[in-house]
Each structure stands twice: as structure tokens, then as C-alpha cells.
Simulated assay, not measured.
Amino acid sequence: MKKYLLTFALGFVSLTSFAQSTYEKIMIEKIAKLETCKSVDDFQVLANDFDRIGKKEVKEWLPSYYAAFAYIQKGRLLMRDGKMTELSAQANIAEKYLDQAETIAGKDNSEIHLLKKMVFSLKMMENPAERYMTDGMKAMEELKLAEKLDPTNPRVTLIQAEDTYFTPEQYGGSKVKGLEQFKTALEKFNAFKPKTTLDPNWGKGEAEYFLSLDSKK
């Protein structure tokens, strides 16, 4: 009887390990695609993929996190193309996924709070004059919390650099200061090691891009 129980236990462990490795394999494949997406449709397809993964892996927070990130990136592309009236819709969907991720991961997750910052920034950009004191303030609060929870998080410094770089000088921005922050972000990226192969590790290429622009002057 003990032999059968042992065989069953080993079989169960093997099945669990196989399921876990399949999940990791799929996630690695989808996460890699975040770097190659070039269009709104690309990010939408990827967001749908992460949504399906999350519905199967209900105990994992990262599928919901990456679904939110895909919607945020989709919104940033729409903003680049001047489609400002569509930003809140994308941000609201991303926020829903972040709430799901937070339910699983807990409230003390720097990466989730950083994406919440980006969500509120998207909402604000739909109408900055009206929403700065609401969504703009919430974005700042989320960024401060993300930094407090993990001061070594290079993505926090990256988004701070973006804000500084693109904010007009009359409102406290500075391209010079922004570039200094991009340098700091890159230093943090070079020292950063994600906890697992699936944990957030995006952003280094963006810091390098802005610094390369400066070097060409």
C-alpha cells in the first residue's frame, strides 16, 4: 500500500512540475513578445493571450500584470498617435487587471503600484487641464509608493525620468535632469536581477534609447 501511495505521490509531483514548466514556457514566450509589439493590434492580441493564461493560472499574479502592461502600452501608442479620447478606456481595463494581480500578490508590490501610476497618467493625459488634480495626483502617489516599496526598482527611476524629460520646464520638467535620471535608471538596470525568469524586467532598452539620443548631439 505504501508503495502505491509513493507512486501516486511521485506521479502527482511530476504532473505538477510539468504543468508549471508549461506555464513558464508559455509565459516566457509571451513576455518576449512585449519587446517586439509595434502596433495597437499587437498589444491587444498579447493582452488577450495573458488574459487566457490568467484564467487558467488563477493563483498567479503575473498574467494579470502583463495583461495590464499590454493595455498600458496600447494606450501609450494611441497617445502617440493623438487619439487622446481613447486613453481612459484602455487605462480602465488595465486597472481591472491590476486589481486582480494585487488580490493575488498583495498590496506591497512595487511593480503593480508602478503600473497603477502609469494607468492614472494615461487617464490624466486624456484631459490634463481637468484631470491633473485628480488622476495626476493619484499617479504621483502611486509612483512614490512604488519607490518606497522598492527603491532599487529601475522601472521606477525610468518612469520618473520620463516624467521629468517630457514635462515642460515651466512646470518643473527638464530634459537635462531627465537624462541624468535615465543614466541612474540604466545603472539600476545593470545591477538589477529579477526574482524569477517571469518577473518584470522591461525598460532597460528605453533608458538606453534616450541616452543614445543625447550622445548623438
Score class of each variant (00 low, 15 high):
Ser39Thr: 15
Phe69Gly: 00
Arg52Asp: 15
Lys83His: 09
Met84Gly: 08
Ile31Phe: 00
Thr85Ser: 05
Tyr71His: 13
Lys25Met: 01
Leu46His: 05
Phe50Glu: 10
Arg52His: 15
Lys30His: 11
Glu57Cys: 00
Tyr65Asp: 11
Met79Phe: 12
Gly75Met: 03
Lys33Val: 12
Ile31Asp: 04
Gln73Ile: 09
Glu60Trp: 02
Val45Trp: 04
Ile26Glu: 12
Ser39Lys: 14
Arg80Lys: 12
Lys56Trp: 13
Gly54Asp: 07
Leu62Lys: 11
Ala70Glu: 09
Phe43Gly: 06
Tyr66Val: 03
Ile28Met: 10
Ile72Val: 15
Glu60Gly: 06
Ser88Val: 13
Leu46Tyr: 07
Lys38Trp: 05
Tyr71Ala: 01
Val58Asn: 09
Met27Gln: 13
Lys59Leu: 10
Gly82Gln: 14
Ala89Ile: 10
Asp42Glu: 12
Ile53Trp: 00
Gln90Asp: 14
Lys74His: 08
Asp42Ser: 10
Tyr71Trp: 11
Gly75Val: 02
Tyr65Phe: 13
Leu77Ile: 03
Glu29Thr: 09
Tyr66Asp: 08
Phe43Glu: 09
Val58His: 07
Ala89Trp: 04
Lys30Phe: 12
Leu77Ser: 01
Leu62Asp: 09
Asp51Trp: 04
Gly82Pro: 08
Ala68Val: 07
Leu34Asp: 03
Ala32His: 05
Glu35Ser: 10
Ala67Arg: 10
Gln90Met: 13
Cys37Ile: 06
Ala68Glu: 02
Leu87Lys: 01
Ala67Ile: 06
Gln44Cys: 02
Ala70Asp: 10
Lys38Cys: 01
Lys33Asp: 11
Ala91Trp: 07
Ile53Gly: 00
Asn48Gln: 12
Leu87Trp: 05
Ile28Asp: 03
Val58Ile: 10
Met84Asn: 14
Ala68Met: 03
Ala70Cys: 14
Leu78Tyr: 08
Val58Gln: 09
Leu78Glu: 15
Arg52Asn: 15
Ala70Leu: 04
Asp51Gln: 10
Gly54Cys: 03
Tyr23Leu: 08
Met27Leu: 15
Arg52Thr: 14
Ala47Trp: 05
Lys25Thr: 09
Lys56Gln: 11
Ser39Trp: 04
Asn92Glu: 15
Lys56Tyr: 13
Asp41Glu: 15
Ile28Gly: 01
Met27Asn: 10
Asn92Gly: 02
Phe50Gly: 05
Ala89Ser: 15
Ile26Tyr: 00
Lys25Arg: 05
Phe43Gln: 11
Asp41Ile: 07
Arg76Gln: 11
Ala91Gln: 06
Leu34Val: 04
Arg80Leu: 14
Met79Gly: 13
Tyr71Met: 10
Ile72Asp: 05
Ala67Pro: 02
Asn48Asp: 15
Lys74Arg: 05
Lys55Asp: 15
Ala68Trp: 01
Leu78Ser: 13
Glu60Tyr: 04
Tyr23Gln: 08
Glu35Ala: 09
Leu77Lys: 02
